[in-house]
Design a protein around this nucleic acid. Sequence first.
DNA 1: TGTAAAACCTATCAAACGATAGATATAGAC
DNA 2: GTCTATATCTATCGTTTGATAGGTTTTACA
Lengths: 251, 251
Amino acid sequence: MSETVPPGPKTSARAAANAGYRKGEETRKRILDIALRAFGDASFRSVTTRQIAEASGVSLPALQYHFGDKEGLYRACAAAIVERYRSHTTAAAAKAREALREDCSAETARAHLKALIGALAGLLVGSKETESWAQFVARELRDPGPAFEILYESLWRPGVEITARLIARILASTDGDPAARLQALLLISSLLAFQSGRNITLRTMHWSTIGPQEMATVLSTLNAQIDAIGRSRSRPAKRATAAGRKKASPR
Amino acid sequence: MSETVPPGPKTSARAAANAGYRKGEETRKRILDIALRAFGDASFRSVTTRQIAEASGVSLPALQYHFGDKEGLYRACAAAIVERYRSHTTAAAAKAREALREDCSAETARAHLKALIGALAGLLVGSKETESWAQFVARELRDPGPAFEILYESLWRPGVEITARLIARILASTDGDPAARLQALLLISSLLAFQSGRNITLRTMHWSTIGPQEMATVLSTLNAQIDAIGRSRSRPAKRATAAGRKKASPR
DNA sequence: TGTAAAACCTATCAAACGATAGATATAGAC
DNA sequence: GTCTATATCTATCGTTTGATAGGTTTTACA
């Protein structure tokens, strides 16, 4: 694993280019799946190449053959997650972008925001597999390691940006509005924390599993938050809010 | 570090019990501070006993003398964080409990909730030190290790419980209401994610630091969320909400 | 002074870990 | 059969890591 560029199928000018083992891609995929789970369950440093090799049924240097070094393997996992993320959120995100381009109303933006959060939640629920992804992503974003830039640029940032733009539309403010951005940050952080912080979520909620029903409950709560965006200011209970504000701001 | 019970000052029946070095407590504290920062910056497994010993200016077995083994040191750090947490939130939490005992109004509960969240935020802002705590806590709760039970039982659970009770009061529901609990979970997760996920927070918000002003912005947003609790249902825009709901629920 | 306790040290150990050298197996073309 | 490319292996290496054995230093007290 001294070479970070994983060896790929090099097309040789020689006619024997199709020779050799034919199971490489299959083995590579098997290793990648095992690694995704392992790196989802524990940190980069905690997961050993030996444990992945053994679980994959291959020898240690086979990992290096396919992925270069440990970091290369880790980054390949991140790239796989990004790919899956894209295939699940592209539709909702594209529709949201289209609506923004057409200068849609605040309520339309709100609906698109709910659809986008729904799509994101849909990506995160349903199997141990997706749980590993969420944990992988949360851990890497929290404690930046070899795959941070991949996940930040290709997953986190696009998601937060489109969310922030929708919220800005709801708030009738500009695209760069920090308040909208902060709301987007908190909203997506909540969702990610919910799924990736599985231990405390299950224990706090006294749930035995996180399935579609539990996810629906969470989405319902998040949708209520989305519904509340931009509306607390026009509340008739404005005085009470202002009083509450004063009390909480002895800074 | 083969003994998990750290050696303490044993009171001997012998008159010579007060003999020996007198700097133990000072050394212990220095090691603990160094360890708190190190374990805040990186995971249990990533931080080495050698790095802590070196930074503390002591030899490796000195760690074992004071704390038993590596896990003992880690748990001592968690206990220190819990102690600090308690000293910062006890007042706000006690007032909230008192108010709940007196069957206070929803708006009073809301004000107490804001005060509690404010106290919690106040614990997390201001120095590299508190940043380490937040990261230590978030990491350990996310990936349970040697100190999980300490932090869960003594920090996380009490915080979420009192928050959930306040929210239940706002919602005029019972103490065990899952909806209130979920809101509490999401609220505290947001705050913790905000502070512990420093890298993505700074980058997402284009901030160069997280100081009192930035924290105030976050609190303002969280207070808006608190204000919105229990109020979206009585909105005159109820129809629009229901329509939005339908669109986001093709499950 | 001697004794004992507290606190600290150097040197060493066994195990774990990522990576590498060199070899081998598989499979197709000629 | 040979040659070549692809894929995989065993054995080994150098380094790191938590822990331990045995020893030393500091300090108070009789």
